[in-house]
């Protein structure tokens, strides 16, 4: 692995001070489950690593009125095993079993996955579907970035090189709303060929009030297919509506083709996942459960 200078700041202030000082020469290390492979493969060679894993203020999960907030040092396994997650952020809970393997989830962090912005990863798509907000700090202050404005391209987020993603905040989960995450991958735990994080909110009249279809592995960023979401709104959540939405997805989504799968195959799978996830999400919305 290429040599670098290792820093272990004790506070967020110290961390953003280091980022301000070193700028593009520095990378943030949290769980390291994406960054360390990049270093091992010599695809990344930062001069400075800023290890935020020991900063106390970033280690908390908070379920307050502002929503479900996950600090930057919180590991996937902490969120997965927390009794709060299933109620407060059911879409996050649904994504967890798909993320790597147990040993990866024991080290990798939720915010690290978001900051890494891999378009084939689950959590960026979940953040986009659930209208999450990124809480970002730099030496000059704090700002929040909506998920819709955060993912700019392949492994590229709206974070400036001097900024640290300190937390992600998922808004309070609305009532009568269900979520579902599904994916197709070559092997369980691999990055998905295509995956979907779906949300269905059902109104008092039994019709769909809100739908979110957020695909991963389908472009340079996670992708919302709003045309298909619009098809669902106002309809009864039934197989006919799901099939129509799936049809729109397959026709409008433009996934990449590569040596793992063709674009046409991915578009087909996206439609299949649409039907499956909508059925599960609608069932959870109307069944009263998450």
């Amino acid at each position: 692995m290429p040599a670098f200078c290792y820093h272990r700041p004790a506070t967020v202030e110290e961390a953003v001070g280091l980022l301000a000082e070193y700028g593009s020469d520095a990378k943030v290390l949290a769980g390291g489950q994406s960054l360390v492979p990049l270093l091992a493969l010599r695809l990344s060679h930062p001069e400075h690593l800023v290890d935020i894993g020991r900063i106390d203020g970033l280690a908390a999960v908070d379920d307050g009125p502002a929503g479900f907030t996950v600090g930057a040092a919180v590991r996937h396994a902490d969120v997965e095993l927390s009794p709060v997650t299933g109620r407060a952020a059911p879409l996050v809970a649904a994504a967890m079993p798909h993320i790597g393997h147990r040993a990866i989830r024991n080290r990798g962090t939720v915010c690290g996955s978001l900051a890494h912005a891999d378009p084939a990863a689950e959590l960026p798509a979940v953040a986009l579907a659930a209208d999450a907000e990124m809480v970002v700090r730099s030496a000059s202050g704090e700002r929040t970035i909506p998920a819709a404005d955060f993912f700019l391209g392949y492994l590229t987020s709206a974070l400036d090189e001097t900024e640290l993603l300190t937390a992600v905040r998922f808004p309070s989960w609305p009532r009568s709303t269900g979520g579902s995450v599904a994916e197709v991958s070559r092997r369980h735990g691999d990055y998905a060929l295509v995956g979907l994080a779906a949300v269905v909110g059902v109104g008092d009249g039994g019709r769909v009030e809100r739908a979110a279809l957020s695909f991963f592995g389908a472009g340079a960023t996670p992708v919302r297919v709003t045309e298909a979401e619009q098809v669902l709104v106002g309809e009864h959540p039934d197989p006919a509506a799901f099939a129509e939405a799936a049809d729109v997805v397959t026709k409008s989504i433009e996934p990449p083709g590569d040596n793992h799968a063709t674009a046409a195959y991915r578009a087909h799978v996206a439609g299949v996942l649409t039907r499956r996830c909508l059925a599960e999400a609608a069932g959870r919305a109307t069944g009263g459960g998450a």
Partner: peptide, 10 residues
């Protein structure tokens, strides 16, 4: 944990 995916210092 994967010991190849951790810096020893972690």
């Amino acid at each position: 944990v994967r010991s190849c995916l951790m810096l020893a210092l972690q």
